[in-house]
Design a protein around this nucleic acid. Structure first.
Lengths: 301, 301
DNA sequence: AAGTTTACATCAAATAAAATTATCTAGATT
DNA sequence: AATCTAGATAATTTTATTTGATGTAAACTT
């Protein structure tokens, strides 16, 4: 009993004839006979009464016919559901982002993506990089955008967008008219630090060490738990700090803050599209990644 | 895409492994691999992510899995529905009877049959013999019981029960103490006739002609349209008549009427179980016929 | 870090199943 | 009786399925 035999059986019932059924599905008449015989042997009962002029189902055949129609119909629906899924950009997409991406990068992308593919429902999960990576490996989150390179053989990454970290100062600061500052100058000013686990803070420390400076020389008047707090601290003249320009773009645009490159420090990092190496990307996920690349390709090249 | 492949696919999803699935359904691992490959080629997409330790469905695979479960479940339900139908005596049975059978024979059978097989719902269609035969050939009525031999190559019949036609008289009749009457004596009494189309009337005329008597000699005071009317006529002394003993058994048992054999006339006929020669009898129909034969076998042998 | 195990893919060969052509049979139809 | 029609049957070719042996890559072991 397989779908092919059921299909043949249904065709015989509907054509009321073995030979007409065989023509309808491009088979020879003996092939139809043998498949029907196989079904009848399987169920150990007659399914079709060969009446001479026409062929009609027996009572048992009538029962099988009803079920066969349902089964074949379900098969067709399965096929079209899969083809819809593969063809149309429609369904659910779960994206994960670490702090900066979930706050500043992904929200900017979701708007126009949703406009382009209104039938996709997106969910954005925020968490620290390791949480996101763990969920990607589990297959729960399909796509991650994080600010660190992951050293895990199950993960593959691609650069999405450059993050330029700069010194952020209030417009009223004495350096507001300057085009850049030197790293050494930072040690004279009150500096707002981040908590130890912060990716941003790690980047700052690493770039100073790489350049031969001792970060301990910074006058860290206060340590803040997140980017928003740091920005508030700068606006309120608590001190200055180094931040992702992505995170303060709005404040720079509205002339509330100014960003200055720090000479002597390699403060560039990247945000990476982060995927499971082994799991298959859904068509929706593929579309989202294409969209992200196009978005930044257009804006920055 | 056939049921076998879906079954294998479901097994892989549920075992989270190609090799475990292969053991679960007694196949080699390469067989499972090749069937999965075939499905993936058919849908032109990956259905399972081979993650190393375990295997999990992709989003497309998840969709197919849901449908596969439904399809296989429906297949199982179809099988058990058919096996129930073939094994258990359960369902519908449409029986057709001509006048005497539908009035006196079949109702007697239905009672005990229903008691024995309470899950069978019986419908009894009454009609003249030709109507019944027509419906049997169409497959609408499965079993007929009629009082005539049918000369049709599409019909097969089997004797079910003998019908002894006898002269029926009131208990107050002058012949009430006699054991039989001679055919010639009938011509002296008022006789209740039946309408021309009646099988009973045809049988009476034929038996008289066969015996060399002219039925026109009967003093037919009235012609009745059905058996009940004739019985009422006899009870009310309108006249006497020849009837199936089957039809008046109750009145004989309750001593309201008496039946006398008519010497010189061959008034025996049979009621026949009547079936389509080509159509397959349902298990319920088979059970009913067995029951009928046993019923009369026990009562008359 | 090299060896071992696990899990699946690949290939060639054997086996099984499906399909075809040609032929046959039983009822209808002429 | 001859012809036609619908399906059954048989022998053959074609196509699928299954398997055992082997390969590969990643994950565990020690």
């Amino acid at each position: 009993m397989d779908l092919w035999q059921l299909h043949i059986f249904v065709s015989v019932v509907e054509n009321k004839s073995f030979s007409k059924a065989s023509q309808a599905i491009n088979l020879s008449q003996p092939t139809v006979s043998s498949h029907i015989k196989e079904l009848e042997d399987y169920f150990k009962c007659r399914l079709l009464d060969r009446l001479g002029k026409i062929t009609e189902p027996t009572k048992a055949g009538e029962i099988l016919y009803q079920y066969s129609k349902k089964i074949l119909n379900l098969r067709d629906r399965a096929e079209s559901a899969l083809h819809d899924f593969l063809g149309k950009t429609k369904g659910d997409l779960l994206i994960g982002g670490s702090t900066i991406p979930s706050g500043y990068i992904i929200p900017k992308l979701i708007g126009p993506f949703s406009k382009k593919f209104p039938e996709v429902s997106i969910e954005l999960a925020a968490g620290d990089t390791m949480q996101i990576v763990r969920e990607i490996k589990k297959g729960k989150i399909e796509i991650g955008i994080v600010g660190a390179k992951i050293d895990d053989p199950g993960i593959k990454q691609e650069k999405l967008v450059a993050d330029e970290m700069k010194l952020i100062i209030p417009l009223s600061h004495k350096w507001a008219k300057r085009a850049s500052v030197d790293c050494l100058e930072l040690f004279k000013e009150s500096f707002i630090a981040r908590e130890k686990g912060s990716g941003t803070w790690k980047s700052i420390l690493k770039s100073m060490e790489d350049a031969g400076f001792d970060p301990k020389g910074l006058k860290t008047c206060v340590t803040m738990g997140n980017t928003i707090s740091v920005i508030q601290g700068i606006l309120n003249h608590v001190g200055i700090s180094i931040l992702s320009t992505i995170a303060v773009q709005d404040d720079i645009d509205t002339k509330r803050l100014k960003a200055l490159p720090v000479k002597g420090l390699a403060l560039d990092r990247f945000f990476y599209i982060t995927l499971s190496k082994k799991r298959t990307l859904s068509p929706i996920g593929k579309k989202f990644i294409d969209f992200c690349k196009a978005y930044y390709g257009l804006n920055f090249v």
